[in-house]
């Protein structure tokens, strides 16, 4: 029940909240606006906020100069590929933890989580050397598998918290009826847990898309996803803000929109059930 509060106070609070929200969002808004300006207008002082000559030339130029589409494809392949792989391996594990727990299940889950607490620099050197020796540096295969491993603990945990809410009796009833385990998972569990599986996928795609430690260290020109590609704009070569903005806008737009839909799952997935 919302409390009744005076209208005047409600307006004042709303004004304050909107002002704060817009200030926090401003860098993103500014990036999007700048991407439609010419390089000259991008650095105009005082800045032209809305009344400038809107242009799409930056978007065309980013593609021409750097084969942008290839990096988008890399991002999509790595994010989707690693997510699907992680689900393939994670769903059975989460099923086992939720529906056939043993004395060691809790310890196993905690151990999986502990791998997520390991700072990546702790294994940077051997992973880099192994990738180099196995010819996996700057390959999509290497990065997809790596990203799957990075996010697997989160996938198992999130799925586990969703599966745990499904009454085990229903699965057992299916089993009584002679359903085999594969059918039990695909035809009984999966439809019931569909929203949970979808949110797990969503969060995992976002995390894989935005990962920037391994992608920066293990890719160069060929397999670089957007996070590594944008980093190439850090070497200053004249004024490039409009182009930087266009490249950035395209890189963050899809994930920002996905992110807006995943607010609640975010809390669940990133706190491992410690905050409900």
């Amino acid at each position: 029940m919302a409390r009744a509060i005076p209208t005047r106070r409600r307006w004042l609070l709303s004004l304050l909240a909107w002002a704060v929200g817009l200030i926090i969002f401003f860098p993103i808004l500014w990036t999007v606006l700048t991407s439609f300006k010419t390089e000259g207008e991008a650095i105009a002082a005082p800045p032209h906020i809305l009344f400038f000559h809107w242009t799409l030339e930056n978007y065309a130029e980013v593609q021409q100069r750097s084969n942008y589409i290839e990096h988008v494809t890399n991002s999509v392949v790595i994010a989707l590929g690693s997510t699907l792989l992680a689900l393939l391996i994670g769903v059975p594990a989460a099923w086992a933890a939720a529906f056939a727990p043993t004395r060691r299940t809790k310890d196993l889950l905690m151990w999986m989580l502990s791998t997520k607490m390991m700072p990546p620099v702790g294994v940077l050197v051997p992973i880099y050397l192994l990738f180099r020796d196995w010819g996996l540096l700057d390959t999509l295969t290497g990065l997809t598998v790596l990203m799957m491993l990075v996010n697997l603990p989160i996938v198992v945990w999130m799925l586990y918290t969703y599966f745990r809410e499904i009454p085990a009796d229903i699965l057992e009833a299916a089993r009584m009826d002679g359903a085999r385990l594969f059918n039990e998972i695909v035809h009984v569990l999966a439809p019931m847990a569909a929203p949970g599986i979808a949110s797990t996928m969503l969060l995992n795609i976002i995390l894989a898309w935005n990962e920037a430690f391994w992608t920066l260290n293990l890719t160069a020109a060929k397999a670089a996803p957007l996070s590594a590609f944008i980093a190439s704009y850090s070497s200053p070569e004249g004024l490039f803000w409009a182009k930087l903005s266009a490249a950035s806008t395209m890189a963050i737009a899809p994930i920002l929109i996905l992110g807006w839909f995943s607010q609640r799952q975010l809390v669940r997935g990133l706190t491992f059930g410690a905050v409900k």
């Binding site: 935005n210 920037a212 963050i252 994930i255 920002l256």
Partner: peptide
């Protein structure tokens, strides 16, 4: 308010 969380770190 939650948008910055989804922005690529390099961006």
């Amino acid at each position: 308010v939650i948008s910055p969380f989804f922005v690529l770190p390099t961006v």
